[in-house]
Amino acid sequence: MTMPSPLLRLDKLRRRRAGRPAVKDLSLTLDRGQVLGLLGVNGAGKSTTLAMVAGALRPDGGAIALDGRDFLEHPELARRLLGWLPERAPLWPELTVAEHLDAHGRLRGLAGAALRRAREDALARLELAPLARRLAGVLSQGQRQRLGLACALLHRPALLVLDEPANALDPVQVAALRALVREEAANGAAVILSTHLLAEVTAVCDRVAILHEGTLRHEGPLAGTDAAALERRFFEIAMGGEAKAA
């Protein structure tokens, strides 16, 4: 009996940015229904990694397999399989919330009744219905973040890539975001989210990966790891204790 291939497989991914290695030989896998938390201090390489996974940056080396296929050879897989929320939700300020969802839906190949259903569903799930006719340019930071998330979720992707999704959200919205991520995972989607908040990881993730200076320093399941142990491990890596010990 053959094992099903993971939804996402990164193999020795490398990328230089601003003349220095931002990601070095990063390998990891992610299965359907799993939530992976990508932890690291600022500049650790989290956003670069997620941009490569999302297909917005091409790696200098290594491979990305999405649903068993070479993602670098077939970037069109992203259209159906992938939803990405970058660090600052990129929006068109002159379009309304509903127009954003329509545009994202059409760009992903949705049309007619399917597009309307997806839009209404996303508006309801992200509690954006009262803002549907408001211009994106006048939304608050938290509302912009929720709209970015709604656009990423609109087509029910198999892989959700979230870069600092809790940015600018209030505590109630953070709790709603956590519930949403867990719901997506329960429905079979894989989620990879970057954060520098340990609480975020322990609250929603099944697995954690810690990046430091572009290198994967720790990767494993969260089950059985208490928050204090994870925190110790994180600081060990972030403060260079591990390197000193080595």
């Binding site: 941009a51 297909g55 970037p75 992203a78 992938l82 970058p86 990129p90 760009l107 992903r108």
Partner: peptide, 14 residues
């Protein structure tokens, strides 16, 4: 500048 070009690339649009 707004980041929407990268977003479109991330949708697999050629």
């Amino acid at each position: 500048r707004a980041g929407t070009l990268a977003l479109m690339a991330g949708m697999g649009l050629p």
